[in-house]
Amino acid sequence: MSSENKVPEHVRLLAEQAGLQRALKMFPDGVTAAVERGLRPLPTPAGADISPISAPASIFDPARFESGK
């Protein structure tokens, strides 16, 4: 049994969805580890207020790009 055949099904599905079939075939352990790292949840520091209302995502400011024209 090749190491590719040991790859968990969810890893295979996610890798194929991401277009990483070639990487999965050549480097199954690397893809498996990448899936684990990518899906690991982000910690929230105690007391930090990161609600979407108080801390929205960065706002795109087109003026910054126009100033160089």
Binding site: L42, A48, P56, A57
Partner: peptide
């Protein structure tokens, strides 16, 4: 390669965490 499996929600939460 790990970046292929970071969801957009996780990325935005990381940027929000960054602001905090």
């Amino acid at each position: 390669m790990a970046g292929a499996f970071v969801s957009s929600a996780k990325y935005i939460k990381a940027q929000q965490l960054r602001r905090a």
